[in-house]
């Protein structure tokens, strides 16, 4: 089976920061706004290099979303930066009316998504943001898996006209996708070929899915691994094609199983090709304090959980 190498663990948020730095040089219409989390979002370079295009809004996320919507009028491409919780739940109505319904070209960039934010606990660990954002008509929803992909996605969304939610995280995780990848919104990445089970993963769970595929392979189970970086619009075709071969699927995400990638995949399969599915996701619960590893273990979001889910779903074929 095809294997991937971690070229050195890095945080996905640094991929965002470095992508934004690149955009600063190449696209003069890109402006950035931050709600008092410049360091956490790795926006320091953009701020230093383009002070006139950087807007510190203070701890006022609702105003930040409105400002960003307004800045598009006249041709700017605003990138807002704060934690995923404050990027979505806190400002849902502002995004709904001023950005999505108004079809504004705003890029909502959200770090510290999910449990891997760690010790800060459940107030900051949003596990509902994919659901909130994918329900908004016209919103593109992206959850990247590593540093390289996050950097490529950050650069790519500037070229996409329309609102985008870009979700990434805090901890250093394996960096394994190619450094010179071209990021195509809405296009699933086929990482590993397999015949017994399809694992569809997004975000930090993609590396875990690759690890799981290795373990499964040792057990004589051939797992196909698909990286869905774009949850909306979803690459229906890639999913249907894969399960046509494997006849069962495991979805894996750092998100509630209500409203996440898993439900989107279930919708596609229910209407096209009903297929047994297991969900590796949080089960309608809040998170808590702990190290990222402890939390992913406790809430069943690691490679072990994916292996178990794969074995379970194969039995349901």
């Amino acid at each position: 089976m095809k294997t991937y190498t971690n070229t050195g663990s890095k945080d996905t948020r640094s991929g965002f920061g470095d992508g934004l730095t690149e955009l600063g040089k190449t696209n003069e219409n890109v402006v950035a706004l931050c709600a008092d989390l410049i360091g956490s979002l790795k926006m320091d370079d953009f701020k230093a290099n383009h002070p006139e295009r950087f807007f510190q809004v203070g701890i006022a996320e609702a105003n930040m979303i409105g400002l960003a919507a307004g800045m598009t009028i006249g041709g700017k491409i605003p990138f807002t930066g704060t934690f995923a919780n404050f990027s979505t739940g806190r400002v849902y109505d502002q995004i709904r009316q001023s950005v999505a319904y108004s079809d504004k070209n705003v890029k909502i960039c959200a770090s510290h998504a999910g449990l891997t934010l760690g010790e800060d606990g459940a107030t900051h660990q949003i596990l509902e943001d994919i659901g909130l954002m994918k329900m908004l008509p016209g919103m593109t929803v992206i959850n990247t898996c590593d540093y390289n992909q996050t950097k490529a996605a950050t650069i790519a969304i500037a070229e996409h006209k329309g609102p985008v939610y870009l979700r990434f995280g805090r901890p250093k995780v394996a960096n394994f996708t190619s450094v010179d990848q071209k990021f195509e919104i809405g296009k699933a990445l086929h990482l590993v070929d397999g015949t017994d089970v399809t694992i569809v993963a997004t975000g930090h769970l993609v590396w875990e899915a690759l690890e799981a595929a290795k373990v499964l392979n040792e057990k004589g189970i051939s797992a196909e691994v698909i990286n869905i970086h774009t949850i909306k619009p979803l690459d229906d075709e890639a999913i249907i094609k894969s399960v046509s071969k494997t006849s069962c699927v495991v979805t894996a995400e750092e998100h509630n199983y209500l409203g996440g990638l898993g439900e989107s995949v279930a919708r596609v399969l229910a209407t096209n090709k009903p297929t047994p599915q297991e969900f590796v996701a949080t089960k309608d619960t809040f998170g808590e304090s702990g190290t990222p590893e402890q939390l992913m273990e406790k809430y069943g979001l690691n490679s072990d959980a994916i292996v178990k889910a794969a074995e379970a779903v194969i039995k349901r074929k």
Binding site: G70, M71, S98
Partner: peptide, 10 residues
């Protein structure tokens, strides 16, 4: 007002 301010800054 937020939207208007954004447009003003642009």
């Amino acid at each position: 007002m937020s939207v208007a301010l954004g447009a003003a800054q642009t």
